[in-house]
Computed example of a mutant assay.
Amino acid sequence: MTANTFQRRVTPLNKIDIERLDEDNLFEYEDFPATFDVLGPMLHSLFQEHWQELGLGHVVNGSVLELEFEAAPTACWMYDGYLTVISQGWHMHLCIGENKGGPERTNSPALRQARQVSRAALSRQLNAQGKPQSWGIQFWNGEGEKMMSIFLPSPFLGAGEDFLPEHQPDLAKLAVYENLRQIYVLGTMDIPYETNPLTRPYISVCRSTRCNNGRDWQSVYDAIAVELKAANLDIDLTAAGCLQVCKMGPIVFYSGDDRDREHTWYTRVTPDVAKEIVTQHLGENQKVTRHLYPQS
């Protein structure tokens, strides 16, 4: 998806579903398009700008898992179809693009479809009187199974998740939900980005011991950092735990940019090769073929 095809105004689906939990509670779902160019901006804005107001986890019959952020996420990027968000002490992955199966693209079309978000909706839990009790976002995969839930701010809860006095809700906390609804469900406001922020290019160096086996990944990382600065390239640099090319390190991954969205993996990278990758591939869009993985 390139910048000139990105549409800032969402076309509403106009779909509302009701799911009854029991005699006293039900969920209302307002669907919005589960495309990468809709999910990407929404999730980026939530995790980068509203992380302190969110919870996320899983809700199934008999169990609930809810996590909160104690600080801003240290990473929010795409890798092989998965959005990865890294927080203190935990991290999450959510498949919002095509999970091809790493550099060798071993995943079948059926598996790719099964893993990817196929449906997304703003949700409200309503009581027996039809009054909302909680607000959030629900995702479903390609097999119709519920995936991760995002829990949005509740006007009934104060600091420390304590209930506010009855009839004194903090309605300002609904601002996040209402803003999301206007942009992504109703389509009355533009997406607040000129392009999908999750397509921003980045380059990553694998620091896994399985990849490096005693090799020095840090010198490769440092060489890339120096070369990026010298070339004045606006590309993020990260270090990753695993890039799916084990025992062939140091591994360098490039996510691609508007010229070419194709992911690229490099093996046996030295500091000198790292400099070539920056100047030749990132600067001139010419891959360093002798270090590509897999080799064609």
Rank of each mutant, 00 (worst) to 15 (best):
I150H: 03
L198P: 02
I150V: 15
L21H: 09
N179K: 10
Q48P: 01
C76S: 15
K287P: 08
P169L: 02
A71C: 15
G89P: 05
F156L: 10
P132K: 08
Y82A: 12
G136D: 03
D258N: 10
A239C: 08
I96H: 06
E49N: 12
V59I: 10
L152V: 08
I137P: 00
D24V: 02
V245R: 04
L13S: 13
P250W: 08
S219L: 06
D80P: 06
A114I: 07
Y184D: 00
T209S: 15
K100S: 00
I203T: 09
E178F: 01
F163Q: 14
K146Q: 12
R124V: 01
L186K: 09
L67Y: 15
L39I: 14
T5L: 08
L43H: 05
K229V: 11
G283D: 04
K15S: 14
I86P: 10
P12V: 14
I18V: 13
R261K: 14
N232G: 14
L228D: 05
Y29P: 07
G283Q: 04
D31A: 02
A75N: 15
N127R: 03
Q48I: 04
A110I: 09
M92Q: 04
W217F: 04
D17I: 06
R9T: 12
G249T: 08
N141C: 13
T195R: 11
Q88E: 06
E30F: 05
E104V: 13
Y79I: 13
A240D: 12
S134G: 11
E262W: 00
T35I: 07
A121F: 07
S219H: 10
P12T: 15
L164Q: 10
D22I: 04
N285A: 10
R115V: 13
N25Y: 12
W265H: 10
H93K: 03
R207Q: 11
Q280C: 01
T84S: 15
T35K: 08
I18L: 11
I203W: 02
D257M: 12
A34F: 02
W217C: 10
F139S: 09
Y29G: 07
F253W: 11
N196A: 09
G142S: 12
R268F: 13
G101Y: 08
E23W: 04
L21G: 11
S255E: 11
A128S: 08
S208E: 13
G55H: 03
E178L: 07
T84G: 14
P294Q: 07
Y177G: 01
R112N: 05
T289M: 15
A121E: 01
V185Y: 04
R200W: 11
R268S: 14
K275T: 00
K100W: 07
P169T: 07
L237P: 01
Q125L: 13
Q48G: 01
K100C: 02
G40K: 08
P12I: 14
I203Q: 06
S134C: 12
W265G: 06
A175H: 02
L292Q: 03
E262K: 03
L243Y: 03
T199E: 03
R119K: 15
E276P: 00
E30R: 09
D236F: 10
